[in-house]
């Protein structure tokens, strides 16, 4: 029954909140300007899209004939501006950032909206450490704190789950989840270590991250490298990091993968996993691969969810308090 809808035209965020949002955006731009980053703009609609097991891009048909609007080239609404920004790096840009919209299908909740504002930046020459330092500095400035802590993925699992995430088998991870009383979905793919790690991360680790102060989780399992480089430690780890505040993930960074042949392999593997999950495989060829063949300089890239940053800065508990018109009112 939906007969009681009233005031549906109104924003869900107060004007006071929108003023805070605008002032944070101003401070963010000043931060990047002070660090000599160039603000860039890249397309929201692209022929290419990232291939990720759990990211579902929305597509748009670029029709030629408006009377047959379902016929035309399929374009993707960007899940992040990553591909285009890396193409700018391959063309010689060294420090770039942008504030843009990103789109992700089937993501809707207190901390998710299918359309959201993303801040993404790249700096050539960064190591994972210097990339994390820049993120810490930005987080400290935006959230008015001079303390941003760091914890490795392994250390976080040892502390909050009591298990080594790089050494434990799928059945050991499953046993840990059962013993710690997690509500386990009935269709968990049993032998899949990464899916168990993600379940444990979401339910037991994430809620504990960034509680006392903003906290960066780093050195992910190599199997979860996405577009990050793998460092040949024992065991090898992905040079990937994420920023958390009060259990909310705010940013994701990579010491970027540069080798196109490794990306091709990962794309193939990811597409097989997508198909096993009943999803369509996505086209692997992209202008990003072309740019990587040409040569991408060593760099760190970070994507930050701006709406979540505002939410955390304002002490709000859901995105609808900081977005004028979330998807239900869009």
């Amino acid at each position: 029954m939906t007969g009681f809808q009233q005031d549906d035209f109104l924003p869900t965020a107060s004007l006071e909140m929108l003023r805070l949002r605008a002032s944070l955006l101003e401070r963010l731009r000043a931060f990047f300007s002070r660090h000599e980053f160039l603000e860039v703009e890249t397309p929201l609609l692209s022929a290419d899209t990232v291939i990720d097991r759990h990211l579902d891009p929305l597509s748009v048909t670029l029709f030629e004939d408006p009377r047959i609007s379902e016929v035309g080239r399929q374009m993707w609404l960007q899940t992040s501006p990553e591909f285009a920004m890396k193409r700018l790096l391959a063309a010689g840009a060294e420090r770039i950032y942008q504030v843009t919209r990103a789109f992700r299908g089937a993501e809707r909740g207190a901390h998710h909206n299918p359309e959201f504002t993303m801040v993404e930046w790249y700096r050539v020459g960064d190591s994972m450490e210097t990339g994390m330092a820049l993120l810490s500095e930005l987080a400290g400035e935006m959230l008015a704190t001079d303390r941003v802590s760091q914890i490795s993925y392994r250390e976080a699992f040892l502390r909050h789950v009591g298990i080594d995430p790089h050494a434990a088998s799928a059945s050991e991870l499953e046993a840990a989840a059962t013993n710690l009383g997690i509500a386990i979905p009935s269709d968990m793919p049993c032998g899949d270590r990464d899916e168990w790690l993600n379940l444990l991360l979401a339910t037991l680790v994430e809620p504990k991250l960034g509680v006392a102060a903003p906290e960066i989780l780093y050195d992910y399992p190599a199997s979860q490298a996405a577009l990050a480089q793998v460092r040949n430690d024992n065991p090898p780890v992905a040079e990937r990091f994420e920023l958390y505040v009060n259990g909310v993930e705010l940013a994701n960074g990579y010491h970027e993968l540069l080798d196109p042949s490794v990306l091709r392999e990962r794309n193939q593997r990811t597409n097989l996993l997508r198909q096993a999950d009943g999803k369509l495989p996505l086209r692997g060829d992209s202008r990003l691969l072309e740019a990587m063949e040409h040569g991408l300089p060593s760099c760190v890239g970070v994507a930050l969810g701006f709406d979540r940053l505002v939410m955390v800065a304002a002490g709000a508990n859901c995105l609808s308090k900081v977005m004028a018109f979330p998807i239900d009112r869009a």
Partner: peptide, 10 residues
């Protein structure tokens, strides 16, 4: 709705 970084939606 919960979805860690690159993890599956819960």
């Amino acid at each position: 709705f919960r979805k860690p970084g690159k993890g599956a939606a819960l």
